[in-house]
Design a binder for these strands. Structure first.
Lengths: 155, 155
DNA sequence: TGGTATAACATGGTATTTTATGGGATTCAA
DNA sequence: TTGAATCCCATAAAATACCATGTTATACCA
């Protein structure tokens, strides 16, 4: 059994006419080894699909149960949005999932999907949008170097 | 079980046509003993590849998880950049990893890779670039001797 | 201490497996 | 029964495991 579970790397995969996409092999391996499933929903902050393990959402649900006070009303609304939007995606024997129209539309994905690892989560982007987003982030991080350094030194 | 794990030394290894490089034996030993894997990504500060143990990134992911709530956008950029770029590299029975085009290009590596130990991390350089970088660093450190001590203590 | 045997390592080449992806066939539900 | 979703098969490319060899470093012994 593996110790560490991180969604990483940036992978470009084709979306075929039926809407099928190969989930990157590494991502599959994680879901398989944890005997959990992949869940996807529309990102609240960007024009992309966001995904994580069902475990993560379960953890979120438990946190809400145990510490209701801790969550502000707005955050509570957000959880409604997430759980209302989230959907499990089982992959078939060849490792593909079928994204829904709603998700694909939100991310503007047509024939190619970009999987971007985020550690405990990942995102799925339209290639052009991701290219722009990556450039934007990189520029911003470079501008705020001191912050980055402080964060990295926490390691 | 070993007490101390540090990436050290400077090792020159060949990169073959497929992008395969022998990971220095000492580095392999560390990953093996810790039962973790090597992760590499493009350095944010220099034209080189940076590597560390998957443990380090996992720690970072956990910190982010704990420090922010599920929907936080503050760390969003950073996680996209770090985890989106990072990739696991398992070495085969002969101790080689296969670096990607993206990484090799960022570091300008063609046929030889220089592994430079950095303690908890290491870097992989193009030989010429490393030569220049080492000279630069050496000159700078000699010039700023008093500062060096203060900087080291911050870490 | 010097010399030799042994083991470890880097590295080239080849074989095998995995992965992504296209194209049906089959099942299911409206 | 028609459209959509799921499953199964096939294939090409890419990643990975395996084998072989020369070289270097290490251990061992006189």
């Amino acid at each position: 059994m593996r110790k560490i579970f991180l969604f990483m790397d940036t992978i470009f995969n084709k979306v075929d006419a039926k809407g099928r996409v190969s989930l990157p092999a590494d991502y599959r391996a994680i879901a398989k080894e944890l005997s959990t499933e992949i869940v996807c929903y529309r990102s609240l902050s960007a024009p992309c699909i966001e995904g994580c393990l069902e475990d993560s959402l379960d953890k979120l649900a438990t946190e809400i149960e145990n510490a209701t006070d801790f969550f502000s009303e707005t955050q509570d609304n957000l959880t409604n949005l997430i759980f209302g939007d989230a959907k499990r995606f089982a992959f078939d024997s060849t490792g593909r999932i079928m994204l829904t129209e709603k998700l694909l539309k939100h991310a503007g994905i047509t024939d190619t999907a970009v999987f971007v690892g985020k550690g405990r989560k990942f995102q799925i982007w339209n290639p052009q949008n991701w290219e722009k987003e990556e450039a934007r982030i990189r520029a911003e991080v470079m501008k705020n170097r001191p912050t980055l350094k402080a964060q990295k030194e926490q390691e």
